[in-house]
Amino acid sequence: MPTAAKGALLQCDPPQMAVLKSINEKAGNIYIIEPIDDHTCLVSENKVDEIKRLVKETMDTAMGIGEDDAEEKDSDLD
């Protein structure tokens, strides 16, 4: 008997999924409804914005933001 689960399908790359999984574990499994594989999982629809923000924050701190701002300088100003 097929069943339907309501939620939002989240697709991303494996590093982000790893980050998301660790956030989810620390928060007591409130985000992920069903982990599917390294690229996909089902999450609560009303938590999507929160998840995006948390994952981005974690990734940014891990990588160190602002390191690549210097290259924006335009060499050939006219």
């Binding site: 097929p2 069943t3 339907a4 309501k6 399908l9 991303c12 790359d13 999507v48």
Partner: peptide, 23 residues
């Protein structure tokens, strides 16, 4: 923006492969 989300429904637990494919 490496993450995409789509709201909707996950369909699972199909009895047979034929059923899964038809749907």
């Amino acid at each position: 923006d490496r993450m995409t989300t789509t709201p909707g429904y996950l369909m699972k637990q199909f009895g047979t492969q034929a059923e899964y494919e038809r749907y």
